[in-house]
Amino acid sequence: MPTAFVDILTDNFGEFSSGFWVTVRLVVVAFAIAMVVGTLIGAFRVAPNKWLQRAGGLYVEFFRNIPLLVLLILLFYGLRDKNGPGIPITGFVAGVLGLGLYTAAYIAEALRSGVFSVSKGQIEASLSLGFSYTETMRRIILPQAFRTVISPIGSLIIAMIKNSAVIGVALALDDLLKVGRTIQSRNFQTFETFFWAGVGYLILTGLVTVVIRQLENRYAIKR
């Protein structure tokens, strides 16, 4: 590799790694939010109660149909607006909330399709054996649903990591891409600098891909 490339990384290693960790923290917290909220909304979507189904549907349609960038700006600049709500939300919190709630809508849909892939006969059998609806879900249906949707959820997590790159530039937060912007503004070595930012994201998505493969090999339902 030409030395110019290596120099960019070594000269700015401190900044690159601090940006990398900001991105890691963003992604981990957003993932937690996305899984918890996504499972909840997914459960709403398949609940027997019509109103719960509608509430879940509304959530999914809202968060899936507005651009992530708009959502982030709304959560940060919108909530902080002194003439509006005036809530002192930080860029980090707005970022993880936006990314988490946005991804949750997709997770909910993936889980819903997972639940529908389990044959209806199993639900009927479970109910007739005396399990309650909640128990049926928790013990019979959801474990199978999760196993079916491991790989779609893996794709969603990878998409989420990539989507996280929007946060830094939009909300003035020093994540991996934004740190790259700052370094580039000093050295004008655009290609080299963003190359390393790209490598940072590849490391993250690569790790997730490996974990997902392992989970698939162990748990996924082979058909």
């Binding site: 600049y77 902080r80 002194k82 003035a172």
Partner: peptide, 10 residues
């Protein structure tokens, strides 16, 4: 953008 961030206390 700086002005926006000053006005909203970031």
């Amino acid at each position: 953008e700086c002005l926006e961030l000053l006005q909203n206390d970031t």
